[in-house]
Simulated scan of single mutants.
Amino acid sequence: MPPPNAAIDISSPATERPFYHAVGNEERVFAAAFRQQLPVLLKGPTGCGKTRFVEAMAHEMGRPLITVACHDDLTTADLVGRFLLRGGETEWVDGPLTRAVREGAICYLDEVVEARQDTTVVLHPLADHRRTLPIERLGETLSAAAGFCLVVSYNPGYQSVLKDLKDSTRQRMVAIQFDYPHQDVERMIVQRESGIGPHVAEDLVRLAQAIRRLDGAGLREVSSTRVLIAAARLAQAGLSLREAAEAAIIAPLTDDHAVGASLRQLVDVYLAGQRHD
């Protein structure tokens, strides 16, 4: 039973490796960091494959994966654990971070800067040579089991100054930079993940690239590989490409009428053929 505020996912190593297509040396860097018991920081835009990468690496390393979706209300107790009342008795319940430390799992803190800075400070002794987790409520300090690896991610372009990662945290970690893949790779990913034909995947990728080139268009985020896959899957389910693009790309990106109109103009240009091969 996880602590109340912790949105977590716990998975054993998959029997088949989750699909991830390397675009650089990120897999080799992660493997080297894992072998040297170094924590890893993944930096990159929303929907570019960071979470899938961690899933694939957990499979490669043969370790369970514990994922925590960080948010403003996440407390140290949510990560470490707390005493809960069960059947009239008080019982200690490990948080996801403590469980990963005990079991030698990979602990992935997704969008770590969404958590309060006083919460992320608990990571410091785990992220340096000590590899320990002090549990003040129990009066003990845990040493990380073999195989434990701390992985955190965030989107530098989205965060404000008030929601940046502390330098004292950054400099404890090996950083891997992510971005949207090259056009040919992204087309292959969209096609593989959705089952859509190559020409439709190509059109969607070209649309995404056009949106990403927009400068000062009032968009907080641009179209990710994730939303392209969603649009392709909607098209596979019978929607027209315009309908799919509206539901999966335009509507999630903006609530502004003028910005939406500009995006629809791009849809008219890049998805005019409406091919469903």
Score class of each variant (00 low, 15 high):
A230E: 13
G44A: 06
A146P: 15
Y20F: 14
V227E: 14
Y108D: 06
C70D: 00
P252A: 01
Q117A: 09
L271W: 01
G24L: 01
L65M: 05
L239F: 14
H199T: 14
I196M: 15
L234I: 05
P156I: 07
A248T: 09
Q117Y: 01
L123R: 04
T169C: 07
K163F: 08
R206I: 05
A105D: 02
R63M: 03
E193S: 14
G62Q: 03
R170Q: 13
K163S: 10
A32S: 11
I135E: 11
V93I: 12
K43T: 12
D94W: 05
Q171W: 08
D167Y: 03
V23G: 10
A175E: 12
L123G: 10
T75I: 02
L142M: 14
V54W: 05
V267S: 03
A146Y: 08
A6S: 13
T225N: 15
L109V: 12
A115T: 02
H129L: 07
Q209K: 06
L271I: 02
L228I: 08
N155G: 10
P18V: 05
N5M: 02
V269M: 06
E27T: 07
I196K: 11
T119V: 10
P252L: 01
F83E: 01
H199Y: 05
Q191N: 10
L65F: 08
G195P: 14
T225Q: 13
W92G: 15
G88D: 03
A127F: 13
G273K: 03
Q171T: 07
V93C: 12
L138A: 14
Q209E: 10
V190D: 06
V113G: 05
L133S: 08
Q177C: 12
G47W: 09
R17L: 09
A58G: 08
D167Q: 05
E246C: 03
R52V: 01
L126D: 08
V93D: 00
A14L: 09
G95P: 12
P156R: 06
N25P: 09
A261K: 12
R35E: 11
K50A: 11
P3T: 06
R233M: 11
F34M: 04
E246F: 05
F83N: 02
D167C: 01
H129T: 04
D72H: 11
G147I: 00
G273Q: 02
P198R: 01
P198Y: 02
V227D: 14
R192N: 12
N5D: 03
Q265P: 07
D277H: 14
M1K: 02
T132F: 15
A232P: 13
